[in-house]
Amino acid sequence: MDGIQLIDVSKEFKTADSYKVALSSINFTIHEGEYIGILGLNQSGKSTLARLLNGLLKPTRGRVLINGMDTDSPQQLKEIRQLLGIVFPNPDNQLICPIVEEEIAFGPENLGLSPSEVHKRVSWALEIVGMQEMRNHAPHLLSGGQKQKVALASVLAMEPSYLVLDEPTSMLDPLSRREVLEHLRMINQENHMTIILISHNPEDLMDAKRLIVLNEGSIYMQGTPKEVYGDMGKLGAVGLNPPGLYQLIQQLEEEGYRIDDNFETIPQLVEKICQK
């Protein structure tokens, strides 16, 4: 069966004198082609969740199934990791090779593909993130944003069905951040890859079709961005604020003005209002 399933998943870490609960009783299903946002502050368990999805961590209780394969079984780990790629937060610490094109070839090579197929995928992935010209550069000469795009391309080149991104933008400048988010949107719409974007920044997750809010290791809220961001009180209680756009929409709706269109930016909203 296709999709990602978490069945009653808990994860505890042993510390010096006690157990620390990182996640408790998480249940959800993600279908192929979805764009999911996972929102939470540090310590909410979101990075643990990312590592559970591709078997870097094993659940203490419960099961994590990727296309029906259990991450607990070592034989299927390689297949799971081919299906589900992860981009990590720190662009510097996930680039392995001294040359950009080798970096992107690293994953496909490990899958045992032929050099010509690898070559094809490297070119394809570089093109998606718009980094063709950097092909023969050394990663340390790139900016943080460029490094993160290379990291994204290197996972794309494995052609996963599911793309998990753990805080991919938290170390980037606003411009690179927008570029990365734009790439993700395209990858979801045109390549039909499933996107699972994990972030502490509510604005990062405005493209998601469904949000899961984590707080202290449990699912705190779930729903469309409009539903989740529309409940300012509940979000605010755990230290999160909806993006400004949704705050404005809520303010207008409280005054009895219905906003039906889907807006992506504040200028778009203002534009629409002025045209009415």
Partner: peptide, 9 residues
Amino acid sequence: EAMDSRCYG
């Protein structure tokens, strides 16, 4: 972790 995630063997 990055190498494991990309199936390094």
